[in-house]
Write a protein that binds this DNA or RNA. Structure first.
Length: 438
RNA sequence: GGGGAGGUGGCGGAGCGGUCAAUCGCAGCAGACUGUAAAUCUGCCGCCCUAGUGGCUACGGAGGUUCGAACCCUCCCCUCCCCA
């Protein structure tokens, strides 16, 4: 199956310029996608373009990932309702470095015939003078053309307008395409559907200045069943950086995919072929409770981003969290499972003598807003210590109840966990809250 | 400037002298069911404790009347509507 047809089958083709299909069948192209360095890590929202590049490479085309070290200094108005705050060049540089690592997991830089390339547009944008820019790029665009672009139009109609800086963004991206065309023979740019206008500007520029034909393709917006933004959970954005989103949580994010979305996500985010995905689709229809599709999705994507080792760790952690009696596990394993769960500490002496009331720990941990609420929670059966339900609202905990005498795992409901470490507080604080909800 | 309506718990919105920590709906939190889903059903939903026909703080703010005020009176602040 050629890439174009594969993209079509995977519903990854939102729109494409004319002739793309034919050229992809005939020739091996060099294609690029830009990544926004406004944070030091990409999040799952960038996964679709990453996969697009990876698929292009796998079918023989040469991918270029552009980290927008230069354009990142400006801010893309596309899909944004307001002006963005500018990042310093040091920040952008640091972010580019972080993103580089993540992209490298998806692309093969050592392939013999079509090695991937990672370039930073700061290399050419930051060295260009304002005069050169106006002469060599600005001259070829009419303001009329730029005003007609959807992203610009929307912002012009808005209350706050659009700064000249962001207005110029389109030209910079068009210029990127031109540079890549000249240096690497790049003739295809892909991107999110909000990038259409920017991509077309590049295509136009290449045609005018070089008389050459370039192509564009845009990917669909990833949607969720609930209508919420893809890649967000109650605990925030799902990042690719394991420091920001632990592999365990990352795995859980995919595992919790809704039935109605899971097939689509398998097509988008895995390299599984049509027969494999069809079979998983059948499994969703006939035996949804086994959640085989979700499991496969979580395994594949986690392996891709964090490696196979992290998959088995996440699976082990899931088994612990949703079943086993954690009191029998080594404390270090428990801590590893709950490493990104909010935690607090209590001093060992509070556990001596009369012990500490569960209610107090709950209120102190922030799991319950007050002791009254904690009492109510216990009465309604929603509190667990070390995965065991607490039935007595006056229950107290002693050192011997703690896992290895070191910690308690408090849980409210099915998913909200909190770790209480038993250790001497550094600054004499009793309960130290860290982090928000689980 | 004149006239009118109104400010109640996260939101909407009842209450109009005791039985009001305040009906109800939404949101939220638990429980049951289930697949770590959806829907549904049940309970909770100001704070405190020694958990009770318990205490404390609350119905825009400040005073007052009363044995007793979210409810009545006075002043102040704020919002909305209509007319100039």
């Amino acid at each position: 199956m050629d890439v174009y047809r594969e993209f079509e089958w995977r519903d990854m083709l939102y729109d494409a310029t004319e002739g793309l299909r034919e050229i992809l069948e005939r020739e091996r192209l060099t294609a690029y996608i830009g990544f926004d360095p406004s944070a030091s890590s990409l999040h799952v929202g960038s996964l679709l373009p990453m996969m697009a590049l990876a698929r292009l490479q796998r079918s023989g085309h040469t991918p270029i990932a552009v980290v927008g070290g230069g354009t990142g200094l400006i801010g893309d108005p596309s899909g944004k309702s307001g002006e963005r705050t500018l990042l310093s060049s040091e920040q952008v540089e640091a972010n580019v470095a972080g993103i580089r690592v993540q992209l490298s997991r998806f692309l093969d830089f050592d392939a013999r015939s079509n090695p991937a390339r990672l370039v930073n547009n700061a290399d050419w944008l930051t060295t260009m003078s304002a005069m050169e820019f106006l002469r060599d790029v600005g001259k070829y665009f009419t303001v009329n053309y730029m005003l007609a672009k959807e992203s610009v139009k929307r912002r012009i109609e808005s209350e706050d307008g659009i700064s000249y800086t962001e207005f110029s963004y389109l030209l910079l991206q068009a210029y990127d395409f031109l540079v890549l065309h000249d240096r690497y023979g790049c003739t295809l740019q892909a991107g999110g559907s909000d990038q259409w206008g920017n991509i077309i500007a590049g295509v136009d520029l290449i045609r005018r200045l070089r008389g050459a034909k370039a192509y564009g393709v845009v990917l669909p917006l990833v949607t969720t069943a609930s209508g919420t933004k893809f890649g967000k959970t109650e605990s925030g954005t799902v990042w690719l950086d394991p420091e920001r989103t632990s592999p365990f949580r990352f795995y859980q994010f995919w595992l919790n995919t809704d039935d109605t979305e899971v097939v689509k996500y398998l097509k988008f985010f895995t390299f599984l072929d049509a027969p494999a995905i069809d079979e998983l689709a059948r499994a969703v229809a006939t035996a949804p409770e086994t959640r085989e599709a979700q499991r496969t999705l979580a395994r594949e994507v986690t392996a891709l981003v964090h490696g196979a080792e992290q998959v088995s760790r996440a699976e082990r952690a899931s088994a612990v969290l949703f079943g086993e009696d954690i009191a029998t596990l080594p404390a270090d394993d428990v801590l590893a499972v709950f490493d990104d769960v909010p935690s607090s500490t209590v001093a060992p002496d509070t556990l001596e003598a009369g012990g500490v009331a569960v209610v107090e720990l709950l209120a102190g941990s922030g799991l319950a807003a007050s002791k009254s609420e904690a009492t109510r929670l216990i009465r309604s059966g929603g509190v667990y210590v070390n995965n065991r339900r607490v039935s007595d609202e006056r229950a107290r905990l002693y050192a011997r109840d703690a896992i290895e005498g070191r910690l308690f795992v408090l849980r409210k409901g099915q998913k909200q966990n909190h770790v209480v470490r038993i250790e001497r507080p550094l600054a004499g604080r009793g309960v130290d809250k860290t982090g928000g909800g689980s």
